[in-house]
């Protein structure tokens, strides 16, 4: 649902409140400044730099997990880090989403054979969007955020459809 369908002079929109909130949320995805490895340079730093400028999509970094909506897992998660990743995820307020960025966060990537490396961050936290690449370009991260926005906007509709199917 695009925002311009709701706006316009003298227009009145009837919308489920949860859908309205999701619409607002999808345009204000604050991610946590939590760069683990190489991907952080591309997905967090270049992304907030002037060329890619995620800020224009409402995607901006917050230093604290308490203020963040999205966690971009940008890098290799090892056994020592796994606990921290889970702890940070638990500290984030609901609703929250996780983007697994890069081969390491998806499956372990080039380091998958090392026994100290966790084979994908989805073993620790639920992942909403996976981005392939080593490292993915900032454009890929941008695309992932667009997909995440779609997912957030559609979730009420999907839930209602599921309820309809049940009854």
């Amino acid at each position: 649902m695009a925002i311009d369908r709701l706006t316009g002079e003298h227009s009145i929109a009837f919308i489920r409140s949860e859908q309205l909130f999701d619409l607002a949320r999808s345009h204000s995805l604050w991610y946590m400044a939590f760069g683990i490895a190489c991907c952080a340079i591309e997905g967090l730093m270049s992304a907030s730099g002037p060329r890619f400028d995620f800020d224009r999509m409402g995607v901006f970094f917050r230093a604290s997990p308490r203020q963040a909506d999205v966690m971009i897992v940008a890098g290799t998660v090892n056994l020592k880090m796994a606990e921290t990743v889970r702890m940070l995820y638990d500290q984030m307020p609901e609703p929250k989403w996780v983007v697994a960025m890069g081969a390491c966060a998806n499956t372990g990537g080039p380091f998958r054979e090392y026994p100290n490396v966790v084979l994908g961050v989805d073993k620790i936290v639920p992942v909403d969007v996976y981005i392939p690449g080593c490292p993915p370009r900032p454009e890929s991260v941008q695309y992932a955020f667009i997909e995440l926005q779609k997912k957030i906007r559609n979730r009420t509709g999907e839930r209602l459809a599921a309820r309809r199917d049940r009854t």
Partner: peptide, 11 residues
């Protein structure tokens, strides 16, 4: 240290 120890030397 060690939060990014991923075995470059072993691999």
């Amino acid at each position: 240290l060690g939060y990014l120890h991923r075995g470059i030397e072993k691999l």
